[in-house]
Design a binder for these strands. Structure first.
Length: 895
RNA sequence: GGGAGCUUAGCUCAGUUGGUUUAGAGCAUCUGCCUUACAAGCAGAGGGUCACAGGUUCGACUCCUGUAGCUCCCACCA
């Protein structure tokens, strides 16, 4: 069969993925083997594959494929997340494009559209993962709103409510005015912005009669960044120790524009050196003001509606002026400008300063979050932790090991400062909160209306109550935190065979940006519902950035089209490119040139295959004059292969995947292709010893097997092309490592060094590769060269090799260790560059010798250092001395 | 404001209990090669006073302190 010039990924990839699927290699059922379980972080159901997913899932596939080859029962569960806010927003937008507003639909109608949308576009991302080669157990594909999953979320809510961990309360929450829903603290991102600090004068209500226009002297100046909330002010607060305002304690001031009379109160909370030291208190629109308001019993006056627009509803009893009518329905940003203009007209704007502050924005919609007092459902996190202390200790004790370890601190800090989790969302797409209310607002928590009625009867002695279910649904993460349990039906069908076998899962691979959203909460859920940790290792990936270090974003247009890249370079090359430099926990600077490197690696492998196929038909069992060469080469490569395999095992255990890949890459490219294959390569059109050929094929197979988790397609393709196979690499069990001989490895290193040095000398003397040389070796131990002399001769094009006891005239000489190599050529040799090299080397060696002997002549070093260290230093000194001697002799020979 | 981390070759990064020949890799650069596996390649080479300043030590890229710069996380100074 004729092989193409270069490797063509497209066909091979489609072919092998289908083959693996047909064979059912990715499917897992519980058996007697040790399980290796990974649950995929479920992407947003409407998402499309991007670099982050690619990194994430490539890592998971590598781990899973390795586990499979190690004989474990590998189970990798795919699925998607209903992502309530994001998906609902997409559905709303889709409806808007069709001219339908959400408000015109009933809940059921809306959900029908949403499900239609999900069925149509949902899970595209899962199909895309197949292109990447992900060996997922597709029979287990889950969705966080599957029927059983939904039931389990409701069940968990009811259970936690019963335990008193879930409560309902009126709290200051983060309100997303675009999505029109509450958010948890984790969904809020604080951003630095340039804004203004407005200094506004509030007139003091003075008992004195004002007889002239001196009134303006009697004011207090307040600094605020949010003048638009001024109509909700219910006090001014100063620090009790602030001497500037002592005379105002207990007095009243007037809110500009509406002249509401508000008290001037004192509280230590106010800092003296910010602004004017006087704070306007607006309990309805600021978290701190809310607390101050509670403490001082202030009135709460809400002036913004749920879209962040002005509403005068709560000002009704204040004789709303025309101004207020004018403000109605105006957006908060616009309102700020108008109010400042209007106050300026009254001459009560003292000044406006530039101000750098932070603003809270919604993680989902990006809009500025509005603090809003609202009735929501909360999870008492402190109680959860105190009842499940393992939630914290599992991580600090490394029972759950984080990679990188430093994220432990982040985790514990969050746990130590945990706040209650607002779990209700004013959305329809999600699990509806199972709370039932009667007309008076009494409620019970129950799975069904019938149960709720019974409970009303029992709890309130109300029979056949007219009940309405809570309109809100639950935070998406309130379902995702059950993911490692419920994908095995651990909540909906507790203690089934699957959950008992697969849980706890083995490794979680996820982004460090969701350590609080998801990882921490899964640990909690694990201990609450299974009394056990959910996973043993967590591998955190960083963020994928472009090569300039910028985040990938639609606006910048710097996020590459992944499927396009797969088409262009092949999935293996993409996997290689993204893995070659991505240490755990660090951001990855994505550069397309690493994909080129991956593609080139494909070709390197492909060409090695072509070479072997050429040899296949030229085997012979006779010619044995070169057996020394082959024996050493084979012996050495076998050792080297096992050395790298051992290293890779160690690196994989530490989750240092890119290091492992680098080692494999170098083993294939340098050791196998550049050294080994050249050493055993027969002369032009010469036959190859059958035994050598078979050994070489065996090595190649072992190499592609080692590579397979990283680059599954080409490795499988080569495995089948290099010889007829009945089995598949995908499920082939790893060959155990054989013991290594360090002597052979050392001799191999010496051999490489000799060849490189001689080639360098040839280069420097402008000897063409075809120009043969005579090589003379001056050494005290010729026996160390016997096994490798033929390889040396072949690799440096030496027509002859012999051993001498003294220098050889008219030659180039190079020194390696204690030995000298004389290169004799028919061509006239120019020793000038070589001499310069030798002098440079000499200088270096002398400097080195000096530092070593200085160390050795230091009494305290000799006294304190470990004996083996001293011995090593002695050896270094001896070597350096020998080498200097060799170089000096060589230089003499040149003159 | 608090915390964590980073700073090693032009770029991206390794460097695992302080001593392995006065620092390694990949990419990029330079030189020479169209050598029938591979020019998407082969053979070589150059390039770093390990951010800076102190300290501990016989010995520091490695440990400690300080300084500078960068990054991330957390946080209610309006």
């Amino acid at each position: 069969m004729e092989l193409s010039k270069n490797y063509i990924p497209t066909e091979a990839e489609a072919k092998w993925y289908q083959h693996w699927m047909d064979k059912g290699y990715f499917f897992s059922t519980p058996d007697e083997r040790e399980p290796y379980t990974i649950v995929m972080p479920p992407p947003n159901v409407t998402g499309v594959l991007h670099m982050g997913h690619c990194l994430n899932n490539t890592i998971q596939d590598i781990l899973i494929r390795r586990a499979r080859a190690e004989g474990k029962n590998a189970c990798w569960v795919p699925g998607t997340d209903h992502a309530s806010i994001a998906t609902e927003a997409k559905v709303v937008q889709m409806l808007r494009e069709r001219g339908i507003t959400k408000s015109s639909l009933s809940r059921d109608e809306f959900l029908k559209y949403a499900w239609e949308w999900k069925e149509k576009y949902g899970g595209i991302i899962l199909q895309q993962l197949k292109k990447l080669g992900c060996s997922l157990d597709w029979n287990r594909t889950s969705f966080t709103m599957d029927e059983d999953y939904y039931t389990s979320v409701i069940k968990v809510f009811i259970e936690l409510h019963k335990k008193g961990v879930i409560y309902r309360g009126k709290r200051m929450i983060n309100w997303d005015v675009k999505a029109k829903t509450a958010l948890s603290d984790e969904e809020v991102i604080h951003k630095e912005i340039q804004s203004k600090l407005y200094y506004i004068n509030y007139l003091i209500d003075d008992d004195r009669e004002h007889e002239d226009s001196m009134a303006m002297a009697d004011h207090i100046t307040v600094a605020t960044v949010r003048p638009e909330t001024i109509l909700g002010d219910s006090a001014i607060c100063v620090n009790p120790n602030d001497k500037r305002y002592t005379h105002l304690h207990g007095k009243f001031a007037f809110v500009p524009l509406i002249n509401r009379r508000i008290p001037i109160i004192t509280d230590e909370y106010v800092t003296l050196d910010f602004g004017t030291g006087a704070l306007k208190v607006t309990p309805a629109h600021d978290k701190n003001d809310d607390e101050l308001g509670r403490k001082h019993n202030l009135k709460v006056i809400n002036t913004l509606d749920n879209e962040g627009k002005f509403t005068a509803v709560e000002l009704a009893d204040e004789n709303p002026s025309e101004l207020i009518v004018k403000y109605n329905g105006i957006d908060r940003d616009e309102l700020r400008k108008i109010i400042i203009e209007d106050i300026a007209v009254l001459n009560q704007v003292e000044k406006i300063e530039d101000y750098n502050g932070t603003v809270a924005t919604s993680e989902r919609t990006g809009v500025v979050v509005e603090p809003l007092l609202s009735l929501q459902w909360f999870l008492d996190m402190k109680k959860i932790i105190s009842e499940n202390p393992e939630t914290v200790s599992a991580v600090t004790s490394d029972a759950i090991t984080f990679h990188p370890l430093k994220l432990k601190n982040t985790y514990s800090y969050w746990m130590d400062n945990i706040k209650d989790w607002c779990i209700s969302r004013q959305l329809w797409w999600g699990q509806r909160i199972p709370a039932w209310y009667d007309a008076e607002g009494k409620y019970v928590v129950a799975a069904t209306e019938a149960e709720a009625k019974e409970m009303f009867n029992a709890q309130y002695s109300i029979s056949n109550a007219q009940l309405k279910q809570d309109e809100d649904c639950l935070d998406t993460w309130f379902s995702s935190w059950l993911w490692p349990i419920e994908v095995f039906k651990g909540i909906s069908k507790p203690d089934n065979k699957e959950i008992d076998y697969y849980y706890p899962t083995t490794t979680l691979v996820t982004g460090q940006d969701i350590i609080f959203f998801w990882v921490a909460r899964m640990v909690m859920a694990g201990y609450i519902f299974k009394k056990e940790l959910p996973f043993k290792d967590v591998y955190f990936t960083g963020m994928v950035r472009d090569k300039q270090g910028r985040k990938m974003s639609k606006q910048l247009g710097n996020s590459p089209d992944l499927l396009g890249l797969i088409d262009q370079y092949g999935a293996d090359a993409v996997r290689f490119g993204i893995m070659i430099s991505s240490p755990a926990g660090n951001d990855l600077l994505f550069d397309e040139s690493s994909l080129e490197q991956g593609r080139n690696f494909n070709n390197k492998l492909w060409n090695a295959l072509k070479l072997l196929k050429m040899w296949e038909g030229r085997q012979s069992a006779t010619g044995n004059e070169q057996l020394t060469i082959e024996n050493f080469a084979i012996n050495w490569f076998e050792n080297r292969l096992n050395q790298v395999k051992t290293e890779v095992d160690g690196l994989m255990k530490q989750f240092r995947l890119s290091e492992a890949l680098k080692n494999i890459y170098s083993l294939v490219w340098d050791d196998f292709c550049s050294w080994y294959l050249e050493w055993v390569k027969p002369g032009f059109e010469q036959p190859i010893e059958k035994a050598v050929y078979e050994k070489t094929v065996g090595f190649f197979e072992e190499l592609v097997q080692l590579l397979h988790p990283f680059m599954p397609f080409i490795s499988e393709e080569i495995y089948h092309l290099v010889g007829d196979k009945k089995d598949d690499l995908c499920v082939k069990l790893t060959i155990a490592n054989r013991p290594m001989t360090t002597e052979i490895l050392a001799q191999g290193e010496l051999l490489k060094q000799v060849i490189s040095t001689l080639r360098d000398a040839r280069n420097k003397n402008q000897l063409k590769p075809k120009e043969a040389i005579q090589l003379h070796i001056q050494t005290a131990s010729p026996q160390s060269y016997i096994a490798i002399e033929n390889i040396v001769a072949k690799q440096v094009n030496a027509a002859s090799v012999n051993y001498v006891n003294e220098s050889v005239a008219n030659t180039i000489v190079v020194a390696i260790e204690k030995d000298k190599f004389y290169i004799e050529s028919e061509k006239q040799l120019d020793s000038a560059t070589l001499k310069a090299d030798l002098l440079k080397d000499l200088e270096h060696q002398k400097g080195f010798l000096q530092s070593v002997s200085k160390k050795l002549s230091n009494e305290r070093f000799v006294q304190n250092a470990k004996p083996e260290v001293i011995a090593l230093e002695r050896k270094k000194m001896e070597d350096a001395e020998n080498r200097i001697k060799t170089i000096e002799e060589s230089l003499k020979g040149l003159n």
